[in-house]
Write a protein that binds this DNA or RNA. Structure first.
Length: 287
DNA sequence: ATGCCGCACCACGTGCGA
């Protein structure tokens, strides 16, 4: 079972774990792992993150490109579904699957939005999350079903964070939270007023992550200009810097103590066949 | 802004994303 195709051969260039070094972790909504394979490979070779949490792989678990990524020196674990959603964890160090669904999720994990991987070398759990969008479909603009699903999902995620915090072991949650925490996180707050990204219960649940004792890596940086991680493909959003900050890395206390830097690798958004999200990356000291 | 763009799929239109 643990020698399955998704986590099989030892990567040829597996990084040797060195005491006292730094490690780098990132989260990236790739908007289809297959369409993004060239850009993803380039990014992994450029930044060499030790662990990458991916969202919107948009493919089934069995068709995740684990062999290609293995060739780049990464183990991978994926939880996919056809066409939509799907999450994965890549790691230069061996990882084992802990959970492939969020405990207490409103649909019992029918939508692939959560994966939890444990890394024995780093003695830490890494969790990739893709929080539901929550906006109603165009065909039923008044419906609140999706928003209710999002709220229930976020509520379950906060509960999971509490449970992990109670266990006391190090962990990092990375993902596309689909929440606009502050008005300054979006180019045009007015346009997102009273949407599933900003409504009070959604923002409240985002704040609840801080109350569990988690640290938002990007917020440790004092940025003077708006920092975004998503730019719509449409209407020249990237060129106009019409972005939104949606992607975050949450660190458990042990990791927060080792925080060095965090940033959005925004230049990735301008690359060939780019995702509409850029990676968010954090360097951590192992000392 | 009803839309734009890019992605996947029983694919040459439709649903979805944020």
């Amino acid at each position: 079972m643990d020698d399955g195709s998704l986590n099989s051969a030892k990567p040829p260039s597996a990084l040797i774990f060195t005491e006292g070094g730094d490690i780098s972790v990132c989260t990236w909504n790739v908007n289809s792992v297959k369409a993004r394979l060239p850009a993803l490979s380039a990014y992994l070779q450029d930044k060499k993150p030790d662990v990458a949490m991916l969202q919107e792989i948009k493919t089934e678990t069995d068709s995740f490109p684990s062999f290609e990524l293995n060739g780049l020196g990464y183990y991978s674990l994926a939880q996919g579904q056809k066409s939509y959603n799907g999450v994965a964890v890549l790691s230069k160090h061996k990882i084992v699957l802990e959970r492939d669904a969020l405990p207490g999720a409103p649909d019992n994990g029918e939508q692939a939005r959560y994966i939890e991987a444990y890394c024995p070398d780093l003695k830490s759990t890494f969790i990739s999350v893709y929080v539901p969008n929550g906006e109603p479909p165009a065909s039923a603009p008044e419906s609140t079903e999706r928003l209710e699903y999002k709220i229930a999902w976020l509520d379950a995620l906060v509960s999971r964070a509490h449970a992990l915090m109670d266990k006391g072991d190090p962990f990092i949650i990375g993902g596309d939270f689909n929440v606009i925490e502050y008005d300054s996180d979006v180019y045009n707050p007015k346009a997102f007023e009273n949407t599933a990204f900003t409504v009070q219960p959604v923002r409240q649940l985002f704040k609840a992550f801080y109350y569990t004792g988690l640290t938002n890596a990007l917020r440790r940086e004092k940025n003077k200009v708006p920092v975004y991680s998503y730019w719509d493909y449409r209407a020249g959003a990237w060129e106009k810097n019409n972005g939104i900050l949606l992607d975050h890395l949450f660190l458990s206390p042990a990791w927060a103590d080792k925080f060095k830097t965090a940033k959005v690798d925004a230049e990735v958004r301008s690359g060939e066949k780019a995702s509409d999200h850029a990676p968010v990356r954090c360097d951590l000291s192992l000392q």
